[in-house]
Nucleic acid binder design. Structure first.
Length: 152
DNA sequence: AGGATGATGAAG
DNA sequence: TTCATCATCCTA
């Protein structure tokens, strides 16, 4: 995942202030911010700051633990389990997430953030963010150390 | 290394 | 109404 700050972060969508597109980012936390990028893909964020304040987290990858057949059907090109959702665009394809979920409540659903079935301890590693030009060296990308499913 | 592909924000 | 830009992925 990657953090995008509300103020001073030129790489963040919220940099341009409150617009139609960024409205959700300035809304209450625990909601999905889904945006369309490169004319083809959609990316999922979690709003992370109190209402009136901008700040969100881009979900760049996930480890599939269920629904394998469905995810493979949505991403026929995926050659391996690791490849299924190891990138922000791949993740939304595999999960069937579209802009219709923009602004959706992540507690109420239909898209929900849930506690894992079994809690596994893990270490978090910090790296620069990926695919941006501004503030590219800021250490705001967070990965699970040693995990095979992180985005490249 | 380059192409697919369209919304967005800022400028005119 | 244009225009550059873009938090990507895939094939070569």
């Amino acid at each position: 995942m990657e953090a995008y700050l509300g103020t001073g972060d030129r790489a963040a969508h919220a940099w341009s202030g409150l617009t139609d597109r960024t409205r959700v980012i300035f809304g209450p936390p625990g909601h999905a911010y889904v945006y369309f990028i490169y004319g083809m893909y959609e990316c999922l964020n979690f709003v992370a700051e109190p209402e009136g304040m901008a700040g969100c987290v881009l979900i760049r990858a996930l480890e599939p633990i269920a629904g394998f057949a469905l995810m493979r059907r949505r991403r026929p090109g995926a050659r391996s389990l690791e490849n299924l959702a190891s990138g922000p665009g791949k993740l939304t394809l595999a999960m069937g997430i579209t802009r219709k979920l923009n602004g959706a409540d992540l507690v109420a659903g239909p898209l929900q953030v849930r506690r894992p079935l079994e809690e596994m301890p893990f270490a978090i590693e910090t790296t620069p963010r990926i695919g941006i030009r501004h503030c590219a060296d800021w250490p705001l990308r967070f990965v699970i150390r040693g995990n095979r499913f992180v985005s490249p």
